[in-house]
Structure formats: C-alpha cells, structure tokens
Design a protein around this nucleic acid. Structure first.
Lengths: 203, 203
DNA sequence: CACGCCTGATGACATTTGTCATCCCCAAAA
DNA sequence: TTTTGGGGATGACAAATGTCATCAGGCGTG
C-alpha cells in the first residue's frame, strides 16, 4: 500500500514539480496539493493522508501553525517540514508543533522521497547541519514583547508607527528595541531585525 | 528532435523537482543541472543546449549576469528566467541582459513546459501581472551611487560602516541616503531599503 | 516572603540621523 | 557656451534614536 501524501507550498511551480517528482516513486501517491496552510488539516482528513509535506513560509496560515492543526485533526498523520531558509529557530518551533521531519530545500532531490518514507515509518528526519546550527544558536534571547516590537519594526517604520501598531508608549518601544539590540549584540535597530529574522526568532 | 535544456537553481530540491517535471515531457531533455550561475555558460556550450532556465537569486554569479554570459557564449541559446520574487526591476534587467522569458515560481506548473517551448520557438514569455507591475513602478529613480549606498545600508550598519564600505565621507553617505529616501518616498532608511529591494532596484 | 523577571511607563541625556544650503569638479546635453 | 545633472564634500541644525536610571504592578519560584 502506497504512502498517501499531501503537499502544501505557496509557489505553484515548486509545488507541482515536487508532486511530479514524488509521484514518480512507486510507493508514494500525491493525493492533494495546496497553495496555503489554511486547508491542509481538512485535506489531510478528507484524503486520509499518511504524510503532509509543508512549507514553513506560506501566506495565510504559516507552516508551523498548519503542522499543529494537522497533528490535532489527524494524530496519525506525520508532518514533514520543507523550508527555503534554514532559520535555526524554525526547527525547534516545528518540532514543538509536532513535526516529524525538517529539511531545507537545498538538500539533494533524491533524498526527499527517502525522507517521506522515514517520517512515514515513524522516524525523525532532521537536516544535520541545521540541527547543529540550532544547537549552536540556542533559543531566542528575546522576550515575547521584545520579539513582537522587533517584528513591528521590521518594515522600517518610525518609533511612532511601532508604538501605534503595538499599542505601547513610544518610550516603552524604545526600551524594548534597546533591550533587543543589547541581547542580539546589534548596534542598530535594523541590524537587530536582520539578526532576529535570520535566526527565526520572529514570525 | 527534443529541446536540450540546462537548469540552474540554487535550491537542490527545486532544481531536481523541476528537472523531473520537465524530463517527463517527450520533447524536452534536461542535459545539465547547476547549483549556481558560474558554470552555466560553459554547460550551455558543452551540451549545446537550446534553452537555459535560470533562477535570478543564486550564490556566486546571479541569474542576470549568468544570462548575459550565456547570450555571449552561445547566442543561439534562449534564456528563460524563473524567479521566486516578482521584483519589477528584475524583469527589465533580465530582458536587457538578453533573456527571452521571465516567469515567477507561483505560475501553474503545467505552463512551465509550454514556456520552455515558446522561448525555444523564439517567442517572448513574460508573466502578465509582473509586466504590468513593471510598467507601473517604472525604472529605478535612484542613481548608481544612491543604489550602491542603499545596498551597503541594507544590512543595518551605521553611517560610519556604510561610509567605510563605500569609501565615502559620512556626510556624503547621509546625503545619498537622504536623496534615496526622498525619491522612494520613505521616511526611514530601513523603509527605503525595503522599498528598493521589493522593486528590484538593488542587487 | 523575598527575589528575580517581564511588562509598561516616564524623563533626561548623548548620539545618530535626516535635512538643507552651499561649495567644487566634471561631463553631457541644449 | 551655458545649462543641467551626477559625484563628492562640508557645516549647521532639527528631529529621531539609543541609553540609562527609575518607578510600579504582576507573576512565578525557591
């Protein structure tokens, strides 16, 4: 009996190509393709899928949240995350959300089918390099609000904009930004944003 | 006789998947897969390819430069750009570099093979939505130095850092940044960076 | 309970940015 | 040839940003 697979990726070209690639495998059957995370859990239930392959970066519901939704709706379905960016923070978050595997998009293509089989067999599949990075960079040093403020700052607005968006005093915003900069070792707000983004501490 | 295709994309998963997808077409033969732009022109010559499919964002030599290299080394080989981000500025730059087509990665998969055939036939293939955006946003309002300084500012350094990187006076850097902000309509340096990046005015 | 830590805020202060006027040199266009 | 526009720079000034001390309430933990 073949592995029933659901694929969710916002880039149609990539999604279709992955489906084509994996559809070639005799023991894998692609039963659904989605362009965002909102319908993934439903699709998994409807097609009684064995494995869900999810991109982390998606419009609507992001991959991490989608993974949690799948686990809740169909505990028997394994989740394999596939991501463009090897943000160390994403890995831990995905695992906490119940994912069984985490691979980046520049792993060799032929390993992908194998990864699907492994998660289906109940094993965990984690990109080794990324795992090392994840351990090295450790958890986010930022508190919830610090991350929230930094995220609000990530589109380049002024302190006033951020304060309005976060419903905080301007002074408080500057304090949080200052704390975030100190913790990340950045000398500039923009640098702090970049560092936090690269580490997957925002979202 | 089948179309001889070279694929270059830095994400191995995507690259392999695209190769698998296009390899299924009876009239297309994938003769080479590359992970960066540096060897593309050589590969095209070596395999006497008819079409080169290039990602814009690649380590080493970027897709635009690679396109120019291909056109120079093998004028008979058409270039089809495939990009993740629909930056309007990229389109024009790619066309100027000699590309025959430009599609974004969230176009339906089945249109891809058709796009390959069209550029092979000498036609131009351009994502319609992106073409409209490109016309709407127009050319970059930034001068060469302004763009250069803005790019140097894009990793969040201080004015002193940028000045050092660009071999300019700090005052001059501030002038250029000010000009860039005025031209882009941004109220912050970071906002100007974001706008310019989104429009493909940097690189 | 006292301690530490997060949230939230205020005010003062030094530094950095952003703005503007003004200057020079040079090249291309009118 | 005069004008226009970019490259490069200086100095002055206003506004924004980053830093720090300090305060207060709340929440969990030893």
């Amino acid at each position: 009996m073949s592995i029933r697979l659901v694929i969710a990726d916002d880039q149609a070209l990539v999604r279709g190509a992955l489906a084509a690639l994996l559809g070639l495998e005799p023991d894998i059957e692609v039963v659904a393709e989605l362009g965002d995370g909102t319908g993934v859990a439903d699709a998994v239930v409807e097609h009684s899928a064995d494995v869900a392959m999810l991109d982390v970066e998606m419009p609507g519901l992001d991959g991490i949240s989608a993974a949690a939704a799948v686990r809740q709706a169909a505990p028997g379905c394994r989740v394999l995350m596939v991501t463009t960016f090897g943000r160390p923070g994403y890995l831990k978050r995905a695992m906490l959300a119940g994912a069984s595997g985490f691979v980046v998009k520049d792993t060799p293509a032929r390993q992908l089918a194998e990864a699907v089989r492994r998660v289906h067999a109940g094993l965990r599949v984690v990109d080794p390099g990324l795992a090392a990075e994840s351990l090295a960079s450790g958890d986010s040093p930022l508190t919830e609000r610090e991350a929230e403020v930094l995220k609000a700052a990530s589109d380049g607005g002024t302190v006033a904009d951020i304060a309005k968006a976060a419903l905080l005093s301007e002074g408080t915003v500057r304090n949080y930004l200052s704390a975030a900069m100190a913790k990340t070792g950045a000398r500039t707000r923009a640098e702090a944003v970049r560092l936090a983004e690269d580490n997957g501490w925002l979202l």
